[in-house]
């Protein structure tokens, strides 16, 4: 079995960030790490490969991102992915989920895996769209927001739990090939030691430009679904009245508010 796991190096913002003139964020205030959801989706792929049914399979980690995104790929290789692919082109700067999915689709098509794993969403953009858009480009069967999965080898079908709102779960069956977007909590992602991360540098990691995956220079612009005009700092705590003072004073105010609202 062959697995492609699509991952993202996400940005988290310091509490005291500064915006640049042009509308972006000063990179000094940004920290990068492998998207939390992707750690679960990678684990799902690795676990399935190790579970006998998928044994001997290959796990390929793919990302769209700049040089720094290789950290995310190394984290995947350290945990057990066999190969990694990074695609980048300057036109992908600030790309939206549709553009990213278009590029991923070009890579996945070349890999022709049995299963594609994506995280439900990324912690920075939180669109929840890239995986499903990718399935759309590939015309691939998919289930979104998966919280459990089991594979039945004889019938080549997966039985998965699809997490719905309000504590409801829908169990569905899906044949291969398929794409799943994986929700947090589905498994316990393994730890990658620093030694493993260093050794992961020995594993194959290729970097492609757009033309390497068969896309032309304008592909990203054509696929993009939206354009960001500007980033703004939200009006903070609109309506939130700030409770100042020592913890004791805060606690006293809370008790007061609760008593007032509960009796009223």
């Amino acid at each position: 079995m062959k697995f492609v796991v699509c991952v993202k190096q996400v940005a988290s913002l310091d509490e005291e960030f500064e915006l640049l003139e042009g509308g972006g964020v000063d990179s000094d205030f940004v920290e990068w790490e492998l998207n939390e959801w992707d750690t679960f989706s990678l684990e799902a792929a690795l676990a399935l490969r190790e579970s006998g049914e998928g044994e001997g399979g290959e796990v390929v980690a793919v990302t769209v991102g700049e040089q720094e995104a290789e950290e995310a790929l190394l984290a995947c290789l350290a945990r057990g992915a066999d190969r990694a692919v990074r695609v980048w082109d300057e036109s992908l700067q600030g790309a939206d989920p549709l553009a990213v999915a278009r590029v991923l689709a070009a890579v996945v098509e070349r890999e022709s895996p049995d299963l594609v794993f994506c995280g439900v969403q990324s912690s920075d953009a939180v669109t929840g769209s890239t995986g499903t858009a990718l399935a759309g480009y590939l015309d691939m069967a998919r289930v979104a927001v998966v919280t459990a999965l089991s594979y039945d080898a004889p019938s080549s079908t997966l039985t998965v739990d699809r997490e719905l709102e309000s504590g409801l779960v829908e169990v569905v069956r899906i044949g291969l090939p398929a794409l799943l977007t994986i929700q947090t909590g589905i498994n316990e992602p393994r730890y990658a030691t620093l030694r493993a991360i260093k050794q992961a540098r020995e594993k194959p990691l290729v970097t492609y430009g757009l033309e390497d995956v068969g896309l032309d220079a304008g592909a990203v612009g054509v696929a993009a679904g939206a354009h960001t005009i500007e980033l703004q700092t939200p009006e903070r705590g609109a309506g939130a009245q700030l409770l100042d003072g020592s913890p004791a004073e805060v606690a006293a105010r809370i008790v007061e508010i609760v008593q007032e609202r509960m009796s009223g």
Binding site: L98, T127, T132, A135, G136, R142, A144, G225, A226
Partner: peptide, 16 residues
């Protein structure tokens, strides 16, 4: 989440 982004991708729509 299971289908709307796929529609946007396939039809080349504006999307957010």
């Amino acid at each position: 989440l299971g289908f709307v982004p796929a529609v946007a991708a396939r039809l080349g729509l504006g999307f957010a």
